[in-house]
Design a protein around this nucleic acid. Structure first.
Lengths: 221, 221
DNA sequence: TTTTACATTTTTGAATGCAAAATTTGCGAT
DNA sequence: ATCGCAAATTTTGCATTCAAAAATGTAAAA
């Protein structure tokens, strides 16, 4: 089995919340489940630890990383910076076809908003942000963005959304699309920053801090 | 031996250019040299591959990553974005003592400039940029910055420096220190971007592209 | 002399084995 | 019954081993 595949499968297990934050990662069990020996599994865990999804405790095994409020704030700040950069670069490089695709995704997302379908809305929202990053045509940036968003993802999509906040988010997305269509890099960068800052306030205000109770909620959601 | 230590030592070997970009990494030799078996070495290589310093070729071993012009451009863009972000955050959080330390480092760097000591100048330059990132008080950002700069470091410090460019760089650093002292986040962010953009032009114009000839140069320098 | 087929050696990727450390279990004392 | 402590078990980290793939070398044929 390819090494990269093991990393991907464990990452998926962690992102699904199947192993909740802070929980021990059972080496032997995972070996049996993935039908591999400990060597490739441990290699994968080291890689995931470097990514920040797993923490290794010497002689005590590995655990799914548990994020503090501070970690969350830090991750959001970086995510903001990366998206702002992606927005600027995207405006320089994006093709009309790509803008068209994003506009379509935007319209669909707005439809989900009108229907009140939060899950589908989030899915569309994520697709747009990822499309902007992709349009920046910078694999290094895309890689870091993927890594950072993976770490916040769980919290990002489980916060309660008030009608006011939701309406504001949609409004901001209108502005995002608009700036993109005008290829206004500075403007887009600015809007994305504000958008992410609001998102962060939302998440942190919801009293993030991964607790056992929270973990249960995350697993169900 | 601690796993993290092996990663650090191999990273150092790669950054020193002891194994030049594109060269095969001799597993057995490294094992003997570090006095470890292949298991921890291979774990370390996987981590370094995830960081982008090493590339793994299935059934063909690992090589020191070789950067194309495009890779270099991408890395610089991201580095710029991260430093700009760090500058903004630093202005919000930096203490007077930290500013004082940076001012001192700045003066020393200028002294090296006046003396024409490029090596020491680069060292001081790097210290200042790292201090700004540290002042942002964001470990996630610091980690990504370290990873990105590690990848460009070799190229960053071997480009020919014309007197004009050097004078401009010093001037920009005056502005950087000034913005920091005024805690002008937006201004600092702007200057840092320009500073890095100039640096990038310098490096790319020098016709980067890691070639065998270039590797030799890197190893000596 | 060059090229191609084949055998040998080397190297890689993964499983297993082993010693050290940590955790759990069991037993006796309070 | 509870606490303390030592023995047993489990788990971790690394070394070694093994099978498969790639590289290398050799010899015969064009």
């Amino acid at each position: 089995m390819l090494h990269e595949e093991v990393v991907g499968r464990i990452r998926a297990i962690l992102l699904d919340g199947e192993i909740p934050p802070g929980a021990r990662i059972p080496e032997r069990e995972l070996c049996e489940r993935l039908e591999i020996s400990r060597t490739p599994l441990r290699e994968a865990l080291k890689v995931l630890a470097a990514e920040g999804l797993v923490q290794l405790l010497p002689h005590r095994g590995s655990r799914a990383a548990k994020l503090t409020d501070k970690d969350m704030r830090d991750l959001f700040e970086v995510c903001q910076g990366l998206e702002a950069l992606a927005g600027e670069l995207a405006c320089e490089r994006i093709s009309d076809a790509e803008i068209g695709a994003i506009a379509a995704a935007h319209d669909e997302m707005v439809r989900h908003y009108r229907e009140g379908d939060l899950i589908q809305y989030y899915r569309g929202n994520r697709a747009i942000h990822e499309a902007i990053v992709a349009a920046a045509d910078n694999p290094v940036l895309a890689g870091l963005y993927a890594s950072v968003t993976a770490r916040i993802r769980r919290a990002r999509y489980v916060t309660p959304m008030t009608p006011q906040r939701w309406a504001l988010a949609v409004k901001e997305h209108e502005a995002i699309l608009n700036a993109l269509q005008r290829r206004d890099g500075a403007g887009l960068s600015h809007i994305l920053r504000a958008h992410l800052r609001h998102k962060r306030e939302e998440v942190l205000q919801a009293g993030f801090a991964e607790t056992e109770a929270n973990d249960l909620g995350l697993r169900i959601a």
